[in-house]
Design a protein around this nucleic acid. Structure first.
Length: 467
RNA sequence: GUGGCUAUGGUGAAGAGGUUAUCACAGCGGGUUGUGGUCCCGUUAUCAUGGGUUCGAUUCCCAUUAGCCACCCCA
């Protein structure tokens, strides 16, 4: 019933809770859909994308493996909200990082809260650890998660505003074996997907040793200030460690003479780092020492690492597949007791695009070995019921019930790669039979309508003579 | 946020300042309503959006938007 003419009732399907009395809209009832003047059909928002059916099997594989790997290493899944208080990321990730400074999707709610779409997962995991008193659980607590993250970055190949991360976090343990094992997990994960990658490792030491090093570094580059570009000068002030990452050839040269962080590590950090490397050696995980590796988030201490895909095509090799490290200060910084922790994450979009490149897919779409074709209304009814029988028997089966033309149905069956087609028409319904056609041989036989599923089971080798 | 390149049907391409914008693939329909993968036929585009130059633009110019690339940064 349409309530169009109802005099007093607003036909609003979805009454907004705190709707303001939009004055303009009241005047013209027609003006509801915003007229995107001159525009074509609506498209995805910039930096966002659809994961189409054709790609889903890659994602399924990646997600299944995530689950397997995580549980085989004793990690438990956690899902945190996509929206958190903005302060969580400001305090967690670091105020002066780009992620917070210019890439945060944040806004004020109608209730006046400052919230943001999560740009990464660690801060939320730590927040949950603190909030739910997980310090009372046997330590360490091992958590893993996967889901979309959001950064208002400029899109590029392998870089989106909504992207998917797989993350592992180990909270409540300072032992270097944790760091090593995280790297081993990542290594095994990539290996299982057939991705050839190298992990680069470095140590940033404690906040104190890092600060000392930073001073030394700044002093060094100050002395060469005249050779620095504007960009690099800005970085010198804001985030000097990043200078080491610069692709500027001038910097590359200066780097050689620059103080190296290893020389500034405190004894504890140095010993810690050595242990990590020893463990990696023990397991035979190949790694690359990278004294210039600095991560973009402020919370890292001691061990840091990043994965890069090996191979010629530099486009993808440029951007990290994932990375992580130890963050011994973060839990305290977010209001918990001082708690050591470490973790890492993978960018699944990049992982998927990598396996797409190296391992092109062959199978697309839903595959089943049996197709049910029907003719006439009686046949269709019978077929509909038969479909349920197959489902109950756990036999993958497909159909095209909306088609009445048998020819078309055969065509579709063929496209699905079905090996057998069960045909039920007027005649079969009346006789209580069904036709089973062998698509490869091109032959067909008539069977008892009640035994169709049984016959197919036999053909699929699910029943041996004994039954 | 800065700079460069690009923008033609669902996809991949071709195209010229001017009457019906080509080609391939996919899709849908059909080849006399009970049988497939070949074949044949039909059908599928206001040439990204807005503006300008011109008698005339999809083709030239500008802006916008988006994609890609480099920077920045990162997963």
């Amino acid at each position: 019933m349409s309530s169009k003419k109802a005099p007093n009732k607003k036909p609003s399907a979805r009454p907004a809770q705190n709707q303001k009395p939009a004055p303009a809209a009241a005047a013209t009832a027609e003006a509801l859909p915003p007229p995107r003047k001159g525009m074509g059909p609506i498209q995805v928002v910039r930096g966002m994308r659809d994961l189409l059916p054709a790609d889903q099997h890659y994602w399924r594989r990646v997600n299944q493996l995530s689950d397997e790997v995580a549980s085989s290493y004793g990690f438990e899944r956690i899902d945190t909200p996509l929206v958190e208080e903005t302060a969580l990321f400001v305090r967690g990730v670091g105020r002066s990082t780009d992620i917070v400074e210019k890439e945060l999707y944040s806004w004020e709610t109608p209730g006046g809260e400052n919230v943001a779409l999560r740009p990464e997962g660690t801060a939320s995991a730590v927040r949950a650890y603190v909030q739910h008193g997980m310090l009372n659980l046997p330590q360490p607590v091992k958590l893993w998660y996967t889901g979309p993250m959001f950064r208002y970055d400029r899109p590029q190949a392998g870089r989106f505003r909504q992207f998917f991360q797989l993350g592992f976090e180990v909270l409540g343990d300072a032992d270097p074996v944790i760091d090593a094992q995280l790297i081993i997990i990542g290594w095994n994960y990539l290996k299982a997907l057939g991705i050839d990658a190298t992990v680069r490792v470095n140590s940033l030491g404690t906040p104190e040793s890092r600060a000392n090093y930073k001073n030394a570094l700044v002093a060094y580059f100050r002395s060469k200030k005249t050779k620095l570009s504007e960009d690099d000068k800005r970085r010198l002030l804001k985030n000097p460690l990043r200078l080491l990452d610069s692709k500027d050839p001038a910097i590359q040269e200066m780097k050689a003479e620059a103080p190296q962080i290893v020389d500034w590590l405190d004894e504890d950090s140095k010993a810690h780092f050595m242990r990590v490397l020893e463990y990696l050696d023990e397991v035979g995980v190949p790694y690359q020492l990278d004294p210039y590796l600095v991560r973009g988030l402020d919370y890292y201490t001691k061990t840091v690492f990043e994965w890069y895909a090996n191979g010629e095509d530099q486009e993808l090799a440029q951007s990290a597949l994932g990375g992580g490290g130890r963050y011994d200060g973060l839990v305290e910084q977010l209001g918990g007791r001082p708690t050591p922790a470490a973790g890492f994450s993978f960018g699944l979009d990049r992982v998927v695009s990598r396996i797409k490149d190296t391992q092109p897919s062959s199978t697309i779409g839903y595959k089943s070995e049996v197709f049910i074709a029907q003719l006439g209304d009686m046949g269709r009814k019978k077929a509909l019921a038969l479909y349920e029988e197959f489902r109950a028997a756990n036999i993958p089966v497909c159909e095209a019930f909306s088609k009445s033309n048998i020819k078309q149905q055969m065509e579709i069956a063929n496209r699905h790669g079905s090996k057998w087609v069960v045909v039920i028409g007027q005649k079969e319904t009346l006789d209580g039979t069904a036709i089973i056609r062998d698509m490869e041989a091109g032959s067909q036989e008539i069977v008892d309508g009640k035994k169709v599923v049984h016959e197919i089971k036999k053909k699929l080798g699910r029943i041996t003579n004994g039954e």
